[in-house]
Write a protein that binds this DNA or RNA. Structure first.
Length: 482
DNA sequence: CTAGGGTTAG
């Protein structure tokens, strides 16, 4: 175009920027951005939205925001692009606060605004926020839109209300593949394997499952420990549905084999698969090694994980736990040194609970809550009842568990226990407690919470980093492997 | 005289 002496205009840029976005070609994108500035189109909302989207798809949220801030007369699509930029780059909270800012300017949200914001609140596992957006959808008369409703199905499932999700799902006008996928995946993460598989059968009569559907189905099998069924679905997917397995499918299979204790088979599967193994696959293997106490494969998995994500402290901690369980203290010491040398800090454990539409957050050993004294008193009271019922804090491996190993003899002040105690004293008897946590639940807390659920006759639901645990009457829905 | 562009759920 330049060779012909032509100057691009406001219609040219969006096309070119879309191409940059599709290729994640950031250098080209920045070059085009310069042309935009030179030709004076930087205040155009169409060009601006395309620029924001390009930067977002290249992972440069900061640059996207600069573009957004320079445009003072904004339309809804410009806002939506910026919301999506945050959402796609793992900043759901920024997405949500920008959404309220948008609403405050008086601009009417569009379908895309709601879909983006609702999915951000799903990522945040923030039920109050999600509910608020549900209300906003009603008021703006978008609740009947199937896209918005599917986003709500996903949000309610991810925020712990599977039944509400199912209800909305049934009220969808047209169930599209994404809608089925949202519901199946929702059941899977709650460990409701039967419901997920029943829904898959039902889906087959009316829609064609895609590769995401199978991620849901396979993860349902793995969370439910259904080894045979998992293999059957994996094979049918390839043979009958002609879907090539992706890393995500392999991750489910590794998890499935690993959970059943078939670690060598899991390792062999990774070695022979035709796609490049990512941190998810090796992470699944490492986690299975932790469950079954396999030091040798755990070491291999960590080696690969260090190559892929050297700064993720969680991986080192898991292998360290495996060493500790096996009594290999020199291994524990070696990893601890490795972590200090690399200046790696474990992420701080945090749990939060919603009570009366308000979120209360707790850190491990936290004493900052206004009701702190009452919370610790309740922990002590319940702790006494637990001892009578036969609970004794596990020793040994707990000293080096996922969080707070310095104060391991005080495991009873782990963040989830504080959140539970707060829930117990601030809700009527029998109310279900819903807690979200940023890390895995430690072994000891898992045992303890089973006791608490029985003693207090409460249903306790905890969302872990990767799945839900439903504690009821002394049993957890994860069947004790997670 | 006309056309053509940006955002969204699993």
């Amino acid at each position: 175009m330049f060779d012909y002496g032509l100057v691009p205009d406001n219609f040219t840029f969006p096309f070119v920027l879309k191409a940059c976005a599709a290729l994640s070609a950031i250098e080209h994108g920045r070059e085009i951005h310069e042309h935009v500035v030179q030709t004076g189109w930087e205040k155009d909302v169409f060009v601006g939205a395309a620029l924001i989207d390009m930067y977002a798809k290249c992972g440069c949220v900061g640059s996207a925001r600069e573009v957004f801030d320079k445009i003072l007369v904004r339309d809804a699509v410009l806002w939506n692009s910026m919301l999506a930029a945050y959402s796609q780059n793992g900043h759901p909270d920024a997405c949500l606060s920008l959404c309220s800012e948008m609403v405050l300017t008086g601009l009417r949200p569009t379908e895309a605004t709601l879909v983006t914001a609702i999915s951000a609140s799903a990522d945040n596992a923030a039920l109050p926020q999600g509910r608020e957006l549900h209300g906003l959808s009603w008021r703006q008369e978008f609740e009947s839109h199937d896209k918005v409703k599917t986003a709500l199905v996903d949000m309610y499932a991810k925020c712990g209300s599977v039944r509400v999700a199912r209800n909305l799902f049934e009220r969808l006008g047209v169930k599209r593949v994404v809608s089925w996928n949202a519901m199946i995946t929702g059941y899977a993460m709650h460990g409701h394997a039967t419901e997920a598989l029943d829904l898959f059968e039902e889906m087959n009569r009316v829609a064609k499952p895609d590769h995401i559907t199978f991620v849901g189905v396979l993860s349902a099998c793995s969370h439910g420990g259904l080894l045979e069924e998992g293999w059957m679905f994996f094979e049918t997917m390839i043979r009958d549905y002609k879907i090539d397995p992706t890393v995500q499918h392999y991750t489910c299979m590794v998890d499935l084999l690993g959970h059943s204790g078939r670690l060598d088979e899991a390792y062999n599967l990774i070695m022979q698969m035709k796609v490049v193994p990512d941190s998810g696959v090796w992470g699944a293997l490492l986690n299975s090694c932790k469950i079954h106490g396999n030091v040798e494969l755990g070491e291999i998995a960590l080696e690969r994980l260090i190559e892929l994500e050297p700064d993720d402290a969680g991986n080192y901690v898991i292998l360290s736990n495996i060493y500790a369980q096996a009594g290999k203290w020199e291994g524990v010491a070696k990893l601890r040194k490795l972590m200090t040398d690399r200046r790696l800090k474990k992420s701080i454990a945090c749990s939060w609970i919603e009570v009366k539409n308000k979120v209360h957050a707790f850190l491990s050993g936290d004493t900052s809550h206004p009701l702190s004294d009452e919370i610790y008193a309740e922990l002590e009271r319940v702790g006494g009842l637990m001892k009578e019922a036969g609970y004794s804090p596990s020793t040994g491996s707990v000293f080096h568990d996922v969080e707070d190993d310095e104060k391991a003899n005080m495991v009873c002040s782990h963040s989830e226990r504080l959140a539970i105690a707060f829930g117990l004293i601030s809700t009527p008897p029998g109310t279900r407690l819903l807690i979200t946590k940023n890390l895995r639940i430690c072994e000891d807390c898992h045992v303890a919470i089973k006791f608490i659920s029985k003693i207090t006759e409460r249903e306790i639901t905890i969302r872990d980093v990767n799945r839900y645990h439903h504690f009821k009457d002394g049993v957890c829905s994860c069947g004790d492997y997670w």
